[in-house]
Amino acid sequence: MMSTVNYVLMGLLFVSWVSLFSLKDITSDSRQRVAVLQGEIIAEQDAIRGLMNDWAVLNEPGYLQDLAHLHLGLNTLSSNQIVRMAALPMAPFAAPGRDSGTMRTAAQGMVQFPAMSFHSPRLDRIEAAEPYMHWPQPSLRPNPSGDAE
């Protein structure tokens, strides 16, 4: 009986010994890998910080302003260069009898434009002299049926 127990204990001892050392090996390997990864993380963080700093330097408003002025001939924006979408005289171009319509924009695809907001006598005069032949185009009209065009 005792000898059996002894054998079992010795077996357990051996298994524990092997497990312990293999675990120690795995642990030291892992620790080394963690150290390497930590080094890499720190290096990457440094690199990210460096890139963020470079990005911020290259985007410094004064630098961009000089570049835009030098290479693109751009100057600072003045208030009369800003127009609201809703303030644009879109309504005169809409088909008769319609109070709103759609237009295609590069950014948003088809968008609804509002009903005619005002009449411009000056615009009416110009429109009478130069009729807008190409507006509205069939492809730009709303598609009430919902079918594919």
Partner: peptide, 24 residues
């Protein structure tokens, strides 16, 4: 803050620009 006194002539120019852009 958007400008509150839009210039009508500029609106017209902008409208013309859009018209030209959208015309096939």
């Amino acid at each position: 803050v958007m400008p509150t006194e839009p210039d009508m002539g500029l609106q017209l120019l902008a409208a013309r620009a859009i018209d030209v852009t959208l015309s096939p």
